[in-house]
Simulated scan of single mutants.
Amino acid sequence: MITDDENSALVRAAARNNAEWCDAVCRAHGLAGEFGEGTWSSTRRTPPLYPDAVSLTPQASAADLAARIDTASPGCSVKDSFACLDLEPLGFEVLFEAQWICREAGRTAPVTTALRWETLRSAASLPAWEKAWNDGEEGNGLFRPELLDGDSTFLAARSEGRIVAGAIATRGASVVGVSNLFATGDAPDAEESAWAGVLTEVTGLWPGLPVVGYESGESLDAAVRQGFTPIGPLRVWLHTA
Rank of each mutant, 00 (worst) to 15 (best):
L181K: 06
G232T: 00
G36W: 10
P74D: 10
E137I: 01
H29Q: 02
P233W: 02
D64T: 15
Q99A: 14
S81H: 07
K131M: 09
I101C: 13
T3I: 04
S41W: 09
S122D: 10
G208E: 11
F96A: 12
I2R: 06
Q226M: 15
D221E: 15
V25K: 01
G197C: 05
F182I: 00
E191Y: 11
L209Y: 06
R103W: 07
A183T: 02
L148P: 05
R45P: 11
E130P: 08
L205M: 15
V224E: 15
G33K: 06
A194H: 03
P230D: 05
L234I: 04
D64K: 13
A66N: 03
R27F: 05
F143A: 02
R44M: 12
V25N: 03
A32Q: 11
T46W: 00
G213D: 10
F143R: 00
F182L: 01
V111D: 15
F35V: 08
S216K: 14
A72F: 04
A196H: 04
E201D: 08
Y214C: 15
T3A: 09
D186K: 14
A223F: 11
S73H: 14
D52F: 00
F154K: 02
A15G: 10
G204Y: 05
T119V: 15
S41I: 03
E218N: 12
R16L: 15
A98L: 07
G208W: 00
R171L: 13
G161R: 04
T170Y: 06
S55N: 08
S179N: 12
R121D: 12
P74R: 08
W129K: 01
G36T: 11
G213R: 04
A83G: 11
L10A: 09
C22L: 02
L87H: 07
L115D: 11
P233N: 11
G204H: 08
A32R: 06
D70Y: 05
M1N: 14
H29M: 01
R12W: 00
D135P: 04
D80P: 09
V212G: 08
A60M: 04
